[in-house]
Amino acid sequence: MKQVEFENRYSAFWSEMEAFFKQASNKAANDQDDKREAQVAAFPKNYRLLCQHLAMAKSRRYAAGLVTRLNNLVQQGYETLYGQSINNRASILDFLIYGFPAALRSNANYLWLAAAVFVLPYVAMMAAVMLNDQIIYSVMDAETVRSMESMYDPEMRKLGRERQSDTDIYMFGHYIQNNIGIGFRSFAMGIFAGVGSLFILAYNGLVIGAVSGHLTALGFVDTFYPFVVGHGSFELTAIVFSGAAGLKLGFSLLAPGSNTRLKALQIAAKDAIKIMYGVFVMLLIAAFIEAFWSSSSTMPNAVKYAVGAVLWVLVYYYCFFFARPRVANYQNRHAAK
């Protein structure tokens, strides 16, 4: 076939496909259109046809202008066919319910390690501070200690705040900006062979342990623990999770197994990011509870402890025990991808 003949025969088809891609990129187009539906149905077939045409044009050494046109069409087709988002509503919901616990349960090793790196410094520091009231100054300066003391003073109307004038919404914004940032960072810094995550986990363990020990020793037990019990289940757990996700990144580089380091990192990141979606949601919930519920000083402590206990049980039940067969099933279905 001569080039002119080839062009004459298929030019209309190419123009039609060009119009199709143009419409696809323009979201305002009417999706209900019958013609469009037919085009979408015929798309995989048409795409293969375009690929054939490009191969033909190349092998017959047709003019470069034509080859460029076909190359563009194939490229757009390729993007449309393989770039289609699978993130429809059903699969997002499916992920939130089963995918997150599935990712956690299949990475139990990292969770244990991260929990140990957080909890051991916490317990050790708490004990040390209660035994010796000077030790707290090794992780905090005097100014910070004073302001922390005032935050949990039983005289305060709003707990956990440096300034009583701060509104709930301000604190909500503060917790989001600050705490979620810490969570994200303790994941990201894990890429440095896990060292960053270990450091952030241990450091937070030390500081929070020091605060707990100091306030317990001061006797602020009835203000501090009712304050943290509500959001702690979400917040502390989520920080450990994000550290675990970071450790997974770092470990993939240290021990890539049969893959190249790059490939191992990409596989680990793909799995770790599933944990981070959940961490994000957990820290949002934590920020909400901390700003609007934990700070209240009028709510009886018994209620706070009861609600807190229920939340702790719920979080751990959901993460590790809820719907075991279905979560395992989700894991199996998505493991291949």
Binding site: T167, Y170, F172, G173, H174, I176, Q177, G181
Partner: peptide, 17 residues
Amino acid sequence: GGTGFGIFLIVFFLLEW
């Protein structure tokens, strides 16, 4: 005031990440 700063911090977070 305070509420405004709360919203400010949330937007800050969204823009940052």
